[in-house]
Simulated assay, not measured.
Amino acid sequence: MDVRQRIGWNLRRLRVAKGLSQERLALEAEIDRSYVGRVERGTENVTVGALEAFSAILDIDVSALFAEIDSSSSLPPPLRSGRKPKSH
């Protein structure tokens, strides 16, 4: 697994753990949603600025995006599609 794939894997894992969609992460980081998807797929050379934005939104240290991946780990499942119900 190359570094781009490792960053993408960790970004998805951490984003899903926080319950954020790609769209919400992109909106809060002021980054295009399709860019987030390309980063998660490991096809984009992510910028330092984007890494900083992602880590700020996810409330993590940037180094967490570079963490080693356990070879027995499976990709995190996607979030449920559709809008979340409004809380009253």
Rank of each mutant, 00 (worst) to 15 (best):
M1V: 13
V3G: 00
R4F: 09
R4G: 02
G8T: 07
L11V: 13
R12Q: 12
R13K: 15
R13C: 08
R13Y: 07
L14E: 06
K18S: 08
G19V: 07
G19Q: 05
G19N: 08
L20H: 10
Q22F: 04
R24T: 13
R24V: 11
L27C: 07
E28H: 05
E28M: 12
I31L: 15
D32K: 11
R33F: 01
R33G: 06
R33W: 01
R33M: 07
S34K: 11
Y35Q: 15
R38C: 08
R38P: 02
E40P: 09
G42D: 05
G42A: 06
T43H: 13
V46N: 05
V46A: 07
V46G: 03
V48W: 04
A50M: 13
A53G: 09
A53I: 06
F54S: 08
I57R: 10
I60E: 02
V62T: 09
S63M: 02
F66H: 12
F66S: 08
E68P: 12
E68F: 03
S71G: 01
S72Q: 13
S73V: 06
S74D: 09
L75F: 13
L75G: 02
L75Y: 13
P76L: 05
P78L: 03
R80C: 00
G82N: 11
R83N: 05
H88E: 14
H88G: 15
